[in-house]
C-alpha cells in the first residue's frame, strides 16, 4: 500500500467525522473547533493531490483568518446562547436535505462529464504548471495579473477607511458644538445626543 493511500485513509474518515460532528454538536464553539480540524484534514487532501499552494492557502486563510472571524462573531453574539426552539422556517429541514442531495448529484455529474472518475491528474496539468504549481501560480499572479493585485490593495485601503469613518462617529469625533447643533431625532438614534438636550427622551419625532 503506497504511503499516499495510507495518509488518505487516515485523514478521509477524520474529515467526514469532523464534518458530521460540526453539524451535530449543540455548542457553537465546539462546532467551530470541529470546523478547524475539518479544514486541516481538507488541507492534507490538497497536499496529496499535488497542490501545495492550495494546501498552504487552506491553512493560512481558512483555518487561520476565517476561523478567527467565526470565533469573533460567536463570542460577540454570546457563547451560551441556546438554540432557537424548533425550526424557524417551515420545511427548512426537508428543503435542506433535497438541496444537499441535488448538489451531490450535480457534483458527481460534473466530475464524471469533466474528467471522469479516474485516479490520474487530468491531461495538461503538468503543461500549465511548469516548475511546479506554486511557481506557475506566482507567474500568473505577479506577472499577468500584477496590476489587479495592486488595485486590490487600494480596495482594501478604501474598505478600511470606510469602516473607520463609519465607526468613528460613535466616539468623541463629534464636537460638543455639533452635538448641540444637531441634537434631536437623528443623533438620538445613535445614542449621541447631549444629556438633557431636547429630543433625547421619548419616541423619535419621525
Amino acid at each position: 500500500m503506497p504511503l499516499d493511500n495510507v495518509v488518505f485513509w487516515v485523514f478521509a474518515p477524520l474529515s467526514v467525522a469532523t464534518a458530521i460532528g460540526m453539524i451535530v454538536v449543540r455548542n457553537a464553539v465546539h462546532a467551530a473547533l470541529f470546523l478547524v480540524v475539518n479544514f486541516f484534514t481538507i488541507a492534507v487532501m490538497y497536499l496529496l493531490l499535488d497542490a501545495p499552494f492550495l494546501f498552504a492557502v487552506q491553512i493560512v486563510v481558512y483555518a487561520g483568518a476565517i476561523m478567527v472571524l467565526f470565533l469573533f462573531v460567536i463570542m460577540l453574539l454570546g457563547v451560551d446562547r441556546g438554540d432557537a426552539p424548533g425550526e424557524r422556517l417551515l420545511g427548512q429541514r426537508t428543503t435542506a436535505v433535497i438541496l444537499a442531495v441535488a448538489i451531490v448529484a450535480e457534483l458527481a455529474t460534473a466530475i464524471r462529464a469533466g474528467i471522469g472518475f479516474t485516479t490520474r491528474a487530468p491531461g495538461g496539468f503538468d503543461a500549465v504548471n511548469p516548475g511546479g504549481n506554486p511557481s506557475a501560480l506566482a507567474d500568473v499572479l505577479f506577472r499577468d495579473y500584477f496590476f489587479p493585485f495592486e488595485v486590490t490593495s487600494i480596495l482594501l485601503i478604501v474598505a478600511a477607511v470606510a469602516a473607520m469613518v463609519l465607526a468613528l462617529r460613535r466616539s468623541k469625533s463629534l464636537s460638543q458644538r455639533e452635538i448641540e447643533t444637531h441634537a434631536g431625532d437623528d443623533l438620538e438614534a445613535y445614542g449621541l445626543a447631549a444629556p438633557g438636550a431636547p429630543g433625547t427622551v421619548g419616541e423619535p419625532s419621525r
Binding site: 487600494i154 477607511v161 470606510a162 437623528d186
Partner: peptide
C-alpha cells in the same frame, strides 16, 4: 480586463456607500 472592471467597480462603490452615510443622520 474584466478583473480590473470588477475591482474598479468595488473601489468606487465602497467609497460611495460611505459618502452616502457621511452626515450620520438617520435617512
Amino acid at each position: 480586463d474584466l478583473i480590473v472592471v470588477f475591482l474598479a467597480v468595488e473601489v468606487l462603490s465602497l467609497a460611495l456607500y460611505v459618502m452616502t452615510a457621511l452626515t450620520f443622520r438617520r435617512g
